[in-house]
Amino acid sequence: MNRTDKNIQFLKEKALWVRRETLNIHRIAQETRLASSLSPVEILVVLFYGGIIRFDSKNPRWDGRDRFIISKGHGTISFYPILAELGYFDMEELSRVCKEGTFLGGIPDPIIPGYETVNGSLGHGLGVACGIALALKRQNKNEKVFVLLGDGELYEGSVWEAIMFAGEHKLDNIVLIIDNNKVCMLDYCKNILDMEPLDEKFKAFRWAVNIVDGHDIEQVYASLIELKEDNGGRPNILIANTIKGKGVPSLETDPLSHVKNIMPGDIDAIIDGLK
């Protein structure tokens, strides 16, 4: 097994652990949006355990960090265990999600170390990221700005204002990752407003488009390593094709998975079945 294979195996194990911990959080905090939080697991794992993002968990506002702007806040309960294990806060906090006195709510807020901006309402993250990216460029800083958006979030007009802006201003220090799980709250996105072909839309706005299977650690890892080093004069988008509710069979096939809870008594069996 060479070094890269070892890394991949390590990341796969981490993804399994994160998925398990996310289910454990949902067991005690049924208000959390489980299905949305399970689709970006591999993306979050590769960013934070794969050496893609530079960070200092003891100094979350460290100037030399890469910025990570989460725009689909509700769908990142899976980020809680990652932040805890990396030392942003105590692991014990994970057992208090949505309980009185904690800072870990059902929708993450920037009072949580590691969350940079407000993300409870959709469609804000990319615009703020554009401002950060422009500011970094004007200061000749080489830190990158990673942004996580949901595909349903692309219906917000403010996102397209930012897409135009990033293309025009050649913000090649932005890596936008779309958690393309294809399901909104009430239905499959294609039945609401079909955004395909999504890649063509971004190309038209002068973005460099990359597409991966968002659950394939090798693909996500290889792509993000490449995009991190890319300064080709165009902002980068990584369309990560994912499955909403990945790992929970009853969620994976349900267009209403967004609002579907898994009963605490069913969680152990689901965890046992995780691969």
Partner: peptide, 10 residues
Amino acid sequence: INVAIGMALE
């Protein structure tokens, strides 16, 4: 507004 805030954060 969003770009303004992003720049101000920096």
